[in-house]
Simulated assay, not measured.
Amino acid sequence: MDRRRLTVNCSILFTAASLLHRPRHARDAGFDAVEFWWPFDVTVPADRDVEAFVTAVEDAGVRLTHLNLAAGDLAAGDRGLLSSPRHSAEFRDSVDVATDIGKRLGTVGFNALYGNRVDGLEVATQNELATENLAIAARAAAAIGATILVEPLSAIPAYPLLHAADAVAVCDRVRREHGVDNVMLLADLYHLAVNGDDLDEVLSVHSGRVGHVQLADAPGRGEPGTGNLDLARCLRILDTQSYRGWISLEYRATRADPFDWISDFPA
Rank of each mutant, 00 (worst) to 15 (best):
166 D>F: 06
105 L>W: 00
252 R>Y: 15
31 F>I: 00
47 D>F: 09
227 G>M: 05
50 V>Y: 05
249 L>T: 08
152 P>I: 04
96 D>P: 08
143 A>S: 15
85 P>C: 00
28 D>H: 13
41 D>G: 10
165 A>T: 10
57 V>G: 03
9 N>T: 05
202 V>D: 10
147 T>P: 01
246 W>C: 07
160 P>I: 01
236 R>N: 15
103 K>A: 15
2 D>K: 14
167 A>C: 09
167 A>F: 04
193 A>K: 13
15 T>V: 13
222 G>W: 04
175 R>F: 11
68 N>A: 11
128 E>P: 03
203 L>H: 08
143 A>T: 12
5 R>G: 08
92 R>W: 06
84 S>H: 00
140 A>E: 14
37 W>E: 05
10 C>I: 15
267 A>C: 13
181 D>R: 06
85 P>S: 00
99 T>M: 07
181 D>G: 11
64 L>R: 00
136 I>R: 14
90 E>R: 03
74 L>E: 11
6 L>M: 04
239 D>Q: 12
256 A>P: 07
53 F>V: 02
27 R>N: 11
118 V>A: 04
250 E>Q: 10
64 L>P: 00
212 H>S: 15
93 D>S: 15
52 A>H: 11
249 L>N: 06
96 D>T: 15
139 R>Y: 11
42 V>M: 06
152 P>E: 05
24 R>I: 09
125 T>M: 02
50 V>G: 01
